[in-house]
């Protein structure tokens, strides 16, 4: 377990390093930082002055190491647009996106859990086919389209939910439904496959032979094993949703990290974009590590490996 964790940790750090270098290059190559700092009206001499004072004339690797050292101490630069420090700016938006991601996963699990269990115990029957067809359809729907349909249904026709902006918990309902609907099929497929597999194992047959009640067998013995990969997938999905909520935040005008990223991309505010990409990647890698840890804690076979 420790060796496995050590290897994963080394890999996570390497991934973080590569991504930090890639995002650094992205900013360096996509625009002239001196022009961004001095404005378009700056003269040639002023730009040269800025390059010297900000060290932009040094070799790229030296600049990267300098930037990385600052990044590690929490200094991710300033926004071109608002001149604010990037890190606090992003952190102020993170709660909205994190709430959205948690609620979406919640919706996804709430749909996948009962349907997955039913589909697995009634394998090949109509409920199984229905669950899988629903999953296939929802997997084919772009999340922004589900979002628009929800707006049409709840916001315009029934007028029960706010259609845009962030006021209170109600603002999260439609975005979470739209994203959860998109997450649900992957969770369902995994849960169903896991349940089908466990229900065919020897120890479930033993439990049946011992005369344990079906409910106990399914909920206590089978689900416990089938839910394992679902938990780690949910953790990974959480990391992905942080970066994938851009479109939904745009549709519902939710002021989260996705909206900040989208606005920053539109006004070429690359320090902010760079920091968001880096932060999302770090969170994703951390969630992956966490998922491995959870798996190890719940499954002795992995712990011993």
């Amino acid at each position: 377990m420790l060796a496995l964790l050590g290897r994963k940790l080394v890999e996570a750090i390497l991934v973080g390093l590569i991504i930090s270098f890639v995002t650094f290059l992205l900013v360096t190559w996509t625009g002239d930082l001196a022009i961004a700092l001095g404005g378009l009206g700056a003269s040639r001499e002023e730009l040269q002055q800025l390059r010297t004072t900000h060290g932009l004339d040094r070799p790229i690797l030296v600049q990267y190491l300098d930037w990385a050292a600052k990044a590690l101490s929490g200094d991710l630069g300033r926004s071109f647009f608002s001149k604010e420090d990037v890190l606090p700016l992003i952190l102020s938006r993170l709660p909205v996106t994190a709430t959205l991601a948690v609620c979406s996963i919640g919706v996804g699990i709430a749909l996948a859990l009962p349907l997955g269990i039913l589909a697995a115990i009634r394998q090949g029957r109509w409920i199984d086919h229905t669950a899988q067809s629903v999953a296939a359809v929802s997997q084919a729907m772009p999340s922004f389209w589900s979002g628009l349909l929800l707006i049409l249904l709840f916001g315009v026709n029934l007028q029960v939910l706010p259609i845009s902006g962030y006021e209170n918990w109600a603002s999260f309902v439609m975005p979470s439904l739209a994203l959860g609907w998109f997450v649900f099929p992957i969770l369902l497929r995994l849960l169903r496959a896991g349940m089908v597999e466990t229900l065919n194992t020897d120890y479930i047959r033993t439990a049946r032979a011992k005369g344990l009640s079906p409910r106990r067998i399914i909920l206590k013995h089978a689900l416990r094993n089938a839910v394992l990969p679902v938990i780690s997938l949910a953790a990974v999905q959480f990391g992905q949703l942080l970066g994938g909520s851009v479109v939904i935040e745009a549709v519902f005008a939710l002021p989260g990290v996705g909206q900040l990223a989208w606005n920053s991309i539109q006004r070429a505010d690359f320090p902010v974009v760079q920091a968001i990409v880096l932060l999302v990647a770090v969170i994703f890698v951390t969630m992956n590590l966490l998922a491995d840890l959870i798996n190890g804690a719940l499954d002795p076979r992995i712990r011993r490996a």
Binding site: E11, V15, I19, V246, A261, I265, V280
Partner: peptide, 14 residues
Amino acid sequence: STRLALPALLVALA
């Protein structure tokens, strides 16, 4: 692993 950790949509938009 690096590719999986990168938020693809964000990078694509940028």
